[in-house]
Design a protein around this nucleic acid. Structure first.
Lengths: 187, 187
DNA sequence: AGGCTATGTTAACAATGCTCACATACGTGC
DNA sequence: GCACGTATGTGAGCATTGTTAACATAGCCT
């Protein structure tokens, strides 16, 4: 226990968790570029060098966040209740896009090129795990790998285009309905 | 004219162009994060502050590069020879993806979130111009806006997934053939 | 209690984007 | 042809950032 005065405890308790939590919030608010180690340390009330006891580098922290993102993504995918392959596939597509919109900067980080450039095998594993079920469900329906990749591409592309504001949302649009409509379309 | 000795001329001649050219090369080699103003200045043989006579900031330089990317993209799209809407549409899809693979980091920059965050109306204009014909061609075929967006999403998603190495290219794969196959598939 | 290790702090380094005061070339009006 | 204003490049320096090294403190184990 610390002294009876409210002196801040020298040891934080669970700094790693606190850093990750604060980083996730800060990431979503300011984007990856705005997530500085010093700001992060200050937000948690700790010295600028403290995070290095828990993360080798800023990149390593970002990788951790991305892995967490993939886990969250995987959990959401696994929680879908639909039964028939067709229903399941379309529910997954819809959930995929909504996840991207709800966690814009986290989603961007998950697919960030910078992280892939380094070794980082943990990230690739988390990503592969996340897409395994997706490929499984979409492949078994009709036509194997090509069909699965085509479906994946459409869903991912829609997510990215919406995220970047590239697809203009018009005044009367219900975004969620538009997503379902686009994904249901076979041009 | 400078003196007869080979003293480097104080004024570069066309520094802006030289900076842009060097930046494009450096961008493709090292990625956006690796494109530093000082490195760039050194590569062109000029002082670290010189680029600021031609670009307000690093972001402004990146925006210029992205706009150039969209122009290049638009030219490539316009140069396609196909005639019937169906042929034209599929040729555009193929060209879209190949452009992304050939200009990986430039393509990423064109869709970079960081640039959109700032005002930067020039970038949005260049992007809209680039996609105008795409939307036109794909919309007139069958079903209006939704069909156009669905086609766009699939093409863009395939480009991004390939770019990020997310779609595993297997040993026997011919990448270009795989692209055509995926884009031709209506799941 | 004593010591080992984990965890945090302070001070500093190198690199980066950016700015300011100054130097030099260019071009335009007389 | 020449002075002068403007555009363009230089050099030094500032604030910030990621990162490291030396030191301090807390918690744990015997």
């Amino acid at each position: 226990m610390s002294t009876s005065t409210n002196s801040p405890p020298y040891h934080h308790g669970d700094l790693r968790r606190a850093l990750v939590d604060a980083a996730l919030v800060m990431l979503e608010r300011e984007g990856e570029a705005g997530l500085g180690l010093r700001d992060l340390a200050r937000a948690v009330g700790v010295s600028p060098a403290a995070p290095y006891r828990h993360f080798d580098s800023r990149i390593a922290l970002l990788e951790t966040l991305a892995v967490i993102g993939f886990q969250k993504f995987t959990r959401m995918m696994a929680s879908l209740q639909e039964t028939t392959p067709d229903q399941k596939l379309s529910a997954m597509g819809r959930a995929y896009v909504l996840f991207a919109l709800d966690n814009a900067n986290l989603f961007r980080l998950m697919f960030s090129a910078q992280l892939k450039r380094e070794g980082r095998p943990g990230l690739k594993m988390a990503a592969d795990a996340a897409f395994e079920t997706l490929q499984l469900v979409s492949g078994e329906g009709s036509g194997g790998r090509v069909a699965a990749l085509a479906a994946w591409a459409k869903v991912h592309g829609l997510a990215v285009l919406l995220l970047d504001g590239q697809i203009a949302i018009r005044a009367g649009d219900d975004t969620e309905a538009l997503i379902v409509e686009i994904l249901g379309r076979n041009p």
